[in-house]
Design a protein around this nucleic acid. Structure first.
Lengths: 335, 335
DNA sequence: CTCCAAATTGCATACGTTTGCAAAAGTTGT
DNA sequence: ACAACTTTTGCAAACGTATGCAATTTGGAG
């Protein structure tokens, strides 16, 4: 019972018009009389016709597909972003080709090549770094790129992030204000601007208040690495009374580690994260953290991307969105 | 600096052969002499030629795109599955079009229509139900469908799940064996076979041992609903000493709720989940749960789907994969 | 060297659409 | 009713590839 695929020719025949007429009825900008529109719509309905996007893409060069490149989905922040990005773009009539890529130059390169083959209209990358070579290739092919939650210094690409420097500052002021003086930082990966910015804001914020971090380790955005860092810090001669962790995902590991060492989080040691993923609000962690306003970040990403697709000449822009510090019990306002 | 797109014509001209020859070099099954292959490859390399998958799809009818439909990504099980499915299919030369769809008939219908427009070679659905109408449409269009982690009684679709009935039984035997007699169940959504099977296995397993569940509430796969159910159970006159929850995602909410009521999980009340998502192993929950062997489920899904694509006449199959009960501290082997 | 089968190649067409162009049909003003 | 427009319509040529068919080349075997 294979239903043969119905083409615009079939509809044209049934409606008694030319194939071009059918095409024009289904092409937003084109001109067609009320009468033809009615006839064509009726015939199309009867036959169950739907325009073939592939054929359309081939001729227009626009596929209405957005490539979304993501490295890993362990960190709850990214699935949440993926879900919202997908919904937002679907509402705008775009479809999403998702690629999970190992976060290596080789992996990214192959993925981007595939994306370009499919004539995607735009690319969003999350938790991934692009080489300048690749950046140039996309620009050369006229494909807009927006980096989500990750800046790229000097690449001339659009990006949407939260105000990471300011966020780091907020944590510094909060912890010092709460009376802490032994404060450590388990940073995000130094290879990513996001992590560096948070660290910089944090360190500068401490300095402004005359405090120096008593420990500073790179957690590589990885649970195990972060937990190991926490063990080192808490095992030290003068263990910190507060730890700022580069993102929530690592902060959960740090909390698990601290508890495994017998500490009561929020009393013996204060722990602050960054992202405010849903899990941060769950009872088991109740994590004090800087919120990344996901909805607004997604809106800004979609808006920027579509604007660049509509006008390729448009200059790229780096958008930063401010988010509040959300205080929960893992780090209270006072010791 | 727009680099013009290079076509098989250009390569043919440079290599001094016909366009067909170029096509044949890049088409796996076709025949070409060593000499032409070399010339064409060289020319293609020099020009940076890559075959256009859209044009190829239009003529062959095969897009090498797999549609993946997913309803929500809150439950950590699904992002993990998405990531692995994506990688596995990419390795096989397929690309993934991901759709997040509200889990309503209307939402699913629109998404599947879109998928069929893009001439996807196959569809995988996760955490989503398909109407029999839609099922028939896909079959009519000759598009194989595999349901991931969800069976559909009588739909004649392929599906890959864990051995849910047996899994429920395992939990029953474990809890009774540990000495519990006041045992409740917060089930998954009754509208999904997965949830019903786990419940059935559990209830039957208890019955076999002469025990009857002291409470049975539908948690709708939702945190809030599950937490409310837990509150009702634990507030009752004769609260259960053990609760089997339909999946890990809800179990975490149940644990949070129990703790908020002052209970020590694993001592005052035993809690068992289902899935063994990564979070289940984290210190904050340390959840006893039935493992769904994700890797093997993904393998089976990809294998089944590709087999059906290769041979559309192939009968659909329902695959069940057995998984062990993983004992952690949220429910110990003895009271 | 000859002949035959097998392998390779080019030609031309098809896939399902969009779009420039020119012809046809409406619309308006006088 | 006629001219001067504007809108609608059909024709035909793309877009970049795969593939059946017939012609050509190749490789051996005798």
């Amino acid at each position: 019972m294979l239903e043969a695929k119905v083409t615009s020719q079939d509809v044209a025949r049934l409606a008694g018009v030319s194939q071009s007429a059918v095409s024009r009825v289904f092409t937003p900008g084109a001109s067609a009389s009320k009468a033809t529109i009615a006839k064509v719509r009726a015939a199309a309905e009867q036959l169950g016709y739907r325009p073939n996007p592939l054929a359309r893409a081939m001729i227009t060069g626009k596929s209405r597909i957005i490539g979304l490149v993501v490295a890993y989905l362990d960190n709850q922040f990214y699935p949440a972003a993926l879900e919202r990005l997908s919904n937002a773009l679907q509402d705008k009539g775009y479809h999403i080709l998702v690629f999970t890529a190992a976060n290596s130059q080789d992996g990214i390169e192959r993925v981007i090549n595939d994306l370009m083959d499919y004539q995607v209209d735009g690319i969003i990358t999350a938790s991934v770094a692009m080489s300048s070579d690749l950046t140039a290739r996309c620009a050369g092919a006229g494909i807009p790129v927006v980096l989500f939650n990750r800046g790229q210094p000097g690449a001339g690409l659009s990006s949407v992030t939260s105000a990471n420097v300011e966020g780091g500052r907020k944590v510094a002021r909060f912890l010092v204000g709460a009376g802490h003086s032994q404060i450590a930082h388990i940073a995000g990966w130094q290879g990513a601007l996001t992590g560096r910015d948070r660290q910089r804001g944090f360190v500068e914020g401490l300095a402004d208040l005359g405090v120096e971090a008593c420990g500073l380790i790179d957690g590589m955005y990885d649970r195990d690495t972060a937990a190991a860092a926490a063990r080192v810090l808490l095992d030290g001669a003068a263990p910190p009374t507060a730890i700022f962790v580069g993102n929530d995902h690592m902060a959960f590991a740090v909390i698990d580690q601290a508890r495994a060492m017998g500490r009561v989080v929020g009393r013996d040691v204060a722990i602050v994260g960054y992202d405010d993923v849903p899990l941060a609000a769950w009872g088991a962690y109740d994590l004090t953290t800087v919120r990344q306003p996901l909805n607004r970040m997604v809106e800004a990403t979609v808006e920027t991307l579509l604007a660049q697709i509509a006008d390729p000449a448009r200059a790229s822009q780096q958008i930063e969105i401010d988010g509040p510090l959300v205080v929960r019990t893992s780090a209270r306002g006072e010791i």
